[in-house]
Design a protein around this nucleic acid. Sequence first.
DNA 1: GTCTATACGGTGATAGAC
DNA 2: GTCTATCACCGTATAGAC
Lengths: 199, 199
Amino acid sequence: MPRPAARPGEDAAATRGRILDIAQRLIQDRGYNGFSYRDVAVEIGIRAPTIHHYFPAKSDLATALVERYAADVAALQAALARDEPRPWKRLAGYFAATRERMLAKRQLCLCGVLAMEANSLPDNVRNAVDRFFADNRAWVADQLRQAKAAREIDFSGAAEDAAAMIVSALQGGLLLSRAAKTPEPFDAAVKQVSRALGF
Amino acid sequence: MPRPAARPGEDAAATRGRILDIAQRLIQDRGYNGFSYRDVAVEIGIRAPTIHHYFPAKSDLATALVERYAADVAALQAALARDEPRPWKRLAGYFAATRERMLAKRQLCLCGVLAMEANSLPDNVRNAVDRFFADNRAWVADQLRQAKAAREIDFSGAAEDAAAMIVSALQGGLLLSRAAKTPEPFDAAVKQVSRALGF
DNA sequence: GTCTATACGGTGATAGAC
DNA sequence: GTCTATCACCGTATAGAC
């Protein structure tokens, strides 16, 4: 009789959104193979099979998650490009956003986690993750070129290589910080990257 | 009657070694939560419960694995320090060894994978992984200081920060290369790191 | 040292009632 | 839209025979 909430009329897409939010947090926390529909269900207050109504298979949930996540990051990058005229400041904003969004909650990048587990993931998910990193590298490389042209920063070699190094350092820094249970390794890596670029 | 091999007298510690080898490959491939005793058993040609004879719990296997892996890497670093008088060459050898050992088999660093899954790992395993990265950072920082003192390379800032950046970039590069199914991102990241140091 | 048998819970998924 | 019931596994782990 005393069933808390979220039954019939509770809303339509609201439940779907909650499923995505909780699943994303759980994956960032424990990985794709480390969470179950049941885990998500108990947090919402529904039964596990109900989730199949929104996402028939677990891989459907993962696919939707990566798409939403990639769109969020792309929106952040677009906002930085719109609001911040100095390219080097856009890069700094990107670093800071990575730190805030991920490290404040002691979480890794969703796509970083899924890249690690790529070998046990359906192809469409794996391809979406690959695209995420390719897009990020391209965006970072673009800012690097603009900042260099504006003489705000300096680096030798191709912008694409520098971008690969930067994205790798961010992902790896998150990894080391998780193992160490402190933001120190991530912060040290980002500090050194910034210094190498000259800001 | 036609039982292939590895029965009673097959040897003592040989089976233990095979278990470790196969389990390490599977973890690097699919993660700690992505492999089972059964997977290991079928590859060896024994039954799953037999493995409990060698490693009572799965976490015991993981612990032994991290210890052996850390010892292997430490031995490599010691060999480089012994055989290579130029510190910058030792760093280059460390980068190359990471590339060969991991990327040739399309595998990640064992401790990188376990760091990702740290939240669902027993404390002793997590601590061993943390120690692995701390030791690696310390070794890299040491080579950086020596190479700088010998005027072989140059970098600004603290050697510890640069080491954090380097270890992070290596781990992240492996991650991006797994997603991309090509060594290109790793190679690009390492190329840029080398260039930033001046070799 | 390896086996068979077994316990017991978790997992993704489906069918059908309300 | 959510439930209950149920399925067919798979997972780690233990007990005891050989």
